[in-house]
Design a protein around this nucleic acid. Structure first.
Length: 374
RNA sequence: GGAGGGGUGGCCGAGCGGUCAAUGGCAGCAGACUGUAAAUCUGCCGACUUCGCGUCUACGAAGGUUCGAAUCCUUCCCCCUCCA
């Protein structure tokens, strides 16, 4: 247990902090781009850093299958392997327990997966998930859990959550404490306040370097997600970072930070970028749409990313229509840059005690919608 | 000149007597995407439309056979291959 978290300030329930890891510090609230298979898709590591991201996420399950955790370790660990010298967090494979439901068998001890690529069998237990994350050299490791599906009946959610809590305890025992490295526990319990409370107590009793809220943004909707955060976050220790897993859209990030979340990861900016969607200060844009065909304007005039600095919507539209790789690259870059702009804005306004103003301005501008072409 | 093959919705291309406004693919028009089985997936895609298994016009052209034809017959037009 030696991942230092410093709480630098607060504004209401929102927090401004700093995490010190073996590979550098992370200013929070932070958005962590998803690099599942050892790459933030369509981005060079240095480009990811250029957007302002300080930490990226890798995945235990995917890297275990290919190229293999032992191989990554032999090649110097994930930082060296993917040339990302900064901090790395790794998901435990818990999300795949949900997303690969059809390809896995769950038992009290762990989960047996069939590989989506070649059908081969792979076993993940709470202990093995930690071992793999050690091999990958993740600065922040995550407990192996079962990401509970939604909707779910309360008894099933309770059963699933309690299993995850047992696994969290086993993972905690397997985790080797080293300076600059930490292990986070993951809360479950779906949208049931009593289950979330039970989960929070179970994890804080065990004691982790940080606490993640899992099992949200799986279909319950923003209102239910925020309601769950409202009742759950006060039960977590103030001196540890809080990570909302798999979230989200810009408005989700803003609302969750206001409620006291310090960290996020989400495929949204990268995946949406590869599928033609751009997030902007004035809402979302689908660059595949014909209306951009003759538009000489940038995606977002207020954005400093390469896509907005040097290229028109018409050109981006052309690249996407032509299935040119550069289209996916530029839109991914833009989305990640905009996400980091949001995080910078949130951190800055919390420091100044002006979060309320920031959010009001954010919501007003988002609500305006895109400026129509002349 | 002779022999053979073929002309199908923006394009390519199935269909070869009814259940065909016509399989697929591409292009086109939209939508979705939240700890990545995702550079993916879904819907629409002749015209009209009260958006309904409704009406109309359609499978080179014109006739014909048939209860019924994109599918069979006749003539014509055009394209391709091979032989002279």
């Amino acid at each position: 247990m030696s991942l230092a978290f410093q709480l630098l300030g607060t504004d209401g329930t929102a927090r401004r902090g700093r995490i010190a890891t073996a590979h550098g510090t992370v200013e929070t609230p932070a958005f962590m781009p998803v690099g599942t298979a050892g790459t933030v898709k369509a981005m060079l590591p240095q480009s990811v850093a250029a957007t302002g991201a300080e930490i990226v996420l890798g995945n235990t399950f995917h890297l275990m299958l290919r190229p293999g955790a032992e191989r990554v370790a032999a090649l110097g660990g994930l930082h060296t392997f993917m040339n990302w010298p900064g901090p790395i967090v790794t998901d435990s494979g818990g999300f795949q327990v949900m997303s690969l439901k059809e390809l896995r068998k769950l038992d009290p001890d762990g989960v047996t997966f069939r590989s989506p690529s070649d059908g081969s069998q792979h076993r993940l237990t709470p202990e093995r998930a930690i071992e793999i994350q050690h091999l990958l050299d993740a600065d922040i490791a995550m407990s192996f859990d079962e990401c509970t599906t939604w909707p779910v009946e309360e008894p099933a959610a309770a059963f699933s959550m309690r299993l995850s809590m047992k696994w969290a305890e086993r993972g905690r025992r397997a985790f080797q404490d080293r300076p600059g490295y930490g292990l986070f526990g993951i809360l479950q319990g779906s949208t049931f306040p009593a289950l979330r409370a039970e989960s929070a107590k179970a994890l804080t009793d065990i004691g982790f370097d940080g606490y993640a809220v899992g099992g949200l943004a799986v279909g319950e909707g923003q209102e239910a997600m925020f309601a769950t955060l409202d009742t759950t976050l006060p039960q977590l220790p103030a001196d540890k970072p809080r990570y909302l897993m798999g979230v989200g859209r810009p408005a989700d990030l803003v609302g969750a930070v206001r409620r006291g979340i310090d960290m996020f990861d989400c495929v949204m900016p990268t995946r949406a970028g590869r599928t033609a969607q751009a997030f902007t200060r004035r809402g979302e844009l689908n660059l595949r749409n014909a209306r951009h065909r003759d538009d000489p304007r940038p995606i977002d005039a207020a954005c400093a990313c390469p896509a907005c600095a040097h290229h028109s919507r018409a050109y981006l539209h052309h690249l996407i229509r032509s299935e040119e790789i550069l289209g996916a690259m530029l839109l991914t870059w833009h989305n990640l840059h905009y996400y980091q702009d949001i995080m910078r804005g949130l951190r800055d306004s919390i420091e100044r005690g002006a979060l309320g103003h920031y959010i009001a301005a954010f919501e007003e501008e988002q609500g305006k919608g895109d400026i129509p072409p002349l």
